[in-house]
Write a protein that binds this DNA or RNA. Structure first.
Lengths: 239, 239
DNA sequence: TCCTCAAAACCTGTATGACAGGTTGATATT
DNA sequence: AATATCAACCTGTCATACAGGTTTTGAGGA
């Protein structure tokens, strides 16, 4: 096969990259929305005049970035916005020591000062309830660090969701993986029950401010929360 | 082959995902740094007891996210932090209308208010020079929109770099693709030379503040810059 | 006519083998 | 000892095969 339809223009960055571009281009030009089906591998194979191997690797790559969803027997579909790829990139940066946990926290602080303010202004009653609920569950389970952590993460993600800007949600959620790996360290530096409950109180203050719709107060509490968290990490020797 | 070494624990999310995890796990457990080589496909094939097909698709996926670098004949290597995957995610969100340009600008504003302040505090002389240089090139080429845009983008990326937090750089750079697609729209709403030069002046003000090491002033100018940019986009009907 | 259900057609997941061409290191020649 | 050449290894791509899923279709029965 290979009847070379390629115009001898580019220095060919590999057939797979070309296929990836062709697929994303297809999504764009057809104006596909999440859930819409893509051409089958066989169709792509014919259209691009390459082997199924190449097309498959392209589909698989897009699936790894969560731009499309694959499932056996079914055609690939356009995916909803997902944080998968971003999380991987951040985690990669951390494990290869190209970025530090503290740097991530600085970015989180910057972003969440904003999400919390937006949440105070834009939250629906349901979103406010979810945020308050997460804070309450932190207190109720405060003897079980694992559970507290999960509600802590859910708390921050709920605030991001209430900002009504999915890009914020995307970024905040991408950082959750890092949080899962470092959270317990910060928790341990709060050795007494009193310290731990104080930290939970911080979350409740944030939730209250959002409930009251006071963006300035919410941002203030959030800043305090991050300052204490970062201090805890530094005390624990996380640079 | 397939001597099923798999313990019947998980519901098997597919061999490729497993392979991807094995590779990232390898990077983590071996403490690999950017540039370090990974096992060959053949080695991975033996270790995981799967076909080369599966291993290849895993490598290819990681390469698509720019976590590893592939090149013919050579073994795969751990990649430096790269914005490739994030850009793809953002672009996907835009083209599938899951996020709006304005939402991206709101995030950019939030982040760049911080990067510009950090840049004012932390920039090296060389970094300051690069920032000033970009602003100057905007003015010198102001008759050529394409060129102005590229220097504009370089300007913001240089500021992010001067923040000395690679996570900020990552995010700002990921947004550059969106900027490339919308920049000219904002430019056109500034119909007169005077308006266009005023916008360039805004960049010079930011550069000056960074040069002077005044974070508050720098942030103020950055806020003004974004407010005008967003207004221009809204005037042009970009919701 | 309409419903049910089973077979056919289509699709993806994985395995295998083959070969071209790039890269690297060892060997042999000078 | 420097260099040239070749062998071994590696990735890129292709072709084929088959095992399961999924959707479509159409035949037969209500």
């Amino acid at each position: 096969m290979q009847e070379q339809t390629d115009p001898p223009g580019e220095p060919s960055p590999g057939l797979v990259s070309t296929a990836i571009q062709a697929i994303t281009q297809h999504i764009r030009s057809e104006g596909l929305a999440p859930g819409d089906p893509l051409p089958s591998e066989a169709a792509m194979t014919r259209q691009l005049n390459v082997s199924r191997t190449v097309v498959r690797e392209a589909f698989r790559s897009l699936s790894a970035m969560r731009l499309i969803d694959l499932s056996a027997g079914r055609r690939a579909t356009v995916a909803k916005l997902d944080t998968g790829a971003m999380s991987m990139v951040i985690e990669h940066g951390i494990t290869t020591q190209q970025i530090s946990v503290q740097q991530v926290y600085d970015v989180r602080r910057t972003i969440e000062m904003r999400t919390v303010a937006l949440a105070a202004l834009r939250r629906t009653d349901q979103e406010a309830a979810a945020i308050v609920q997460s804070a309450r569950l932190m207190r109720e389970n405060f003897k079980n660090p694992e559970t507290v952590m999960e509600h802590d993460i859910a708390f921050h993600e709920a605030i991001a969701a209430a900002s009504h800007n999915p890009v914020f949600s995307l970024i905040v959620t991408a950082f959750s993986g890092v949080t899962r790996r470092t959270w317990v360290i910060g928790w341990r530096t709060r050795s007494s029950d009193e310290d731990q409950l104080k930290m939970i109180k911080g979350h409740e203050d944030i939730a209250d401010a959002i409930l009251k719709g006071d963006p300035r107060l919410a941002a203030e509490h959030m800043a305090g929360h991050f300052d204490k968290s970062v201090k805890a990490l530094i005390d624990a020797g996380i640079a």
